[in-house]
Simulated scan of single mutants.
Amino acid sequence: MSSKVVIVTGASQGIGEALVPAYRKLGYSVVAVSRSVQDSDDPEVLAVRADLSQTGEGARVVEETLRRFGRVDSLVNNAGVFVAKPFTEYTDEDYAAVTGTNLTGFFDITRAAVGAMTGPGHVVSVSTTLVEHALSAVPSALASLTKGGLNAVTKSLAIEYAARGIRFNTVALGIVRTPMHAPETHEALAALHPVGRIGEISEVVDAITFLEQAGFVTGEILHVDGGQSAGH
C-alpha cells in the first residue's frame, strides 16, 4: 500500500501499453485500463477492462483501483479516438464515438481520480498538435474540438488544484509510430513533420515520465511533434 499508484488508460497497445513498464520502473503500481487489456503476471499491475466512453465506467475503474491498491496518485488519460474526415462527412456516430472517449471518458475518470487523491497528484492527458497547427492534408475537426477541450481544461484544472498539490499537464503529439497508422503510410506522414520523420512511442513515454517527475511543472502543453507546432 506504500508505493504510488498510476492509472493508465488505453493500455492494451501503443503508447499506453509502453507506459505500464515505464511506470513500473519508476516504482509505481499500475492500473492498466482498456476494453481489451490482458491480465498481467505482475501483482503490481491490475488490468481493468472498461469502455470509458460509457458514463460511470471511469468511476468504476477508480473504485477498483482503491479496492486493490488503496490509493490513486497519478492518471494518464491516453485513451482516445481519432477520425479524419472532411467536416461535413462526419456522422452522428462519429461524433458520439469521438466525444464519448475523448471528452466523456476524460471527465468521468479524471473527476473520480482527482477525488481520490489525498495528497500531491498528477494528471497527464494526451492531445494532438493539430489543435493549434491544422493541416490541410489531415481534416480533423472532431480531434480539434475534443482535444482542444483537453488543452483548455488542463490549464483550468492546474490553477484550480495548484494549492492542493495536484498537477495537470498534457502532451500534444505529432504522428507517432503506433498500430493506428499502417506502415505503408509512414513515409507520407513523415513529411508532415519539420524533422522529416514520425515520432516513436519511446519518445512519448519519455515525455510523460518527465512530466510525472517534474514537480514544478503544471498547466503545461508539452509538444512532442517533431516541430509541427512551430511551423512548416
Rank of each mutant, 00 (worst) to 15 (best):
L135P: 07
A172Y: 06
E203V: 12
I159L: 08
F107E: 03
T55Q: 13
S229W: 07
P43F: 13
K155G: 04
V30A: 04
A50L: 09
I7V: 11
T185G: 06
T209V: 12
I175N: 02
A96R: 15
D206P: 05
S3E: 15
N77W: 03
I15Q: 03
R177Q: 15
Y90L: 11
V171T: 02
T154S: 00
I7E: 05
S12W: 13
T55C: 07
G16R: 09
A141W: 01
E64C: 05
L173V: 07
A162P: 00
L150N: 03
L130A: 09
I175D: 05
T170E: 02
V76D: 02
E64Q: 14
M117P: 06
A84S: 13
G105Y: 07
R67Y: 06
E200M: 08
I15W: 10
A158K: 08
D94S: 09
R67K: 14
T65P: 05
G219W: 00
Y90W: 11
V72R: 03
D42M: 11
D225E: 09
A96Y: 12
N77A: 06
P21W: 13
G165E: 07
Q54I: 15
A97I: 04
S34L: 04
A50S: 04
Y28F: 15
G215L: 00
E63V: 01
N151Q: 09
E44H: 05
I7T: 11
K155E: 10
A134L: 11
A188N: 13
V195N: 09
P43T: 09
F168E: 01
H133W: 12
I7Q: 04
R35L: 10
I15T: 12
T55M: 15
A152L: 10
P194K: 12
V61G: 04
I109V: 14
Q38S: 14
F216P: 01
F210S: 08
E89S: 10
V176I: 14
I15A: 11
A50D: 03
V30N: 05
V8W: 01
T110H: 06
H181S: 12
S2K: 14
L75W: 00
H181T: 15
G100A: 10
E220I: 02
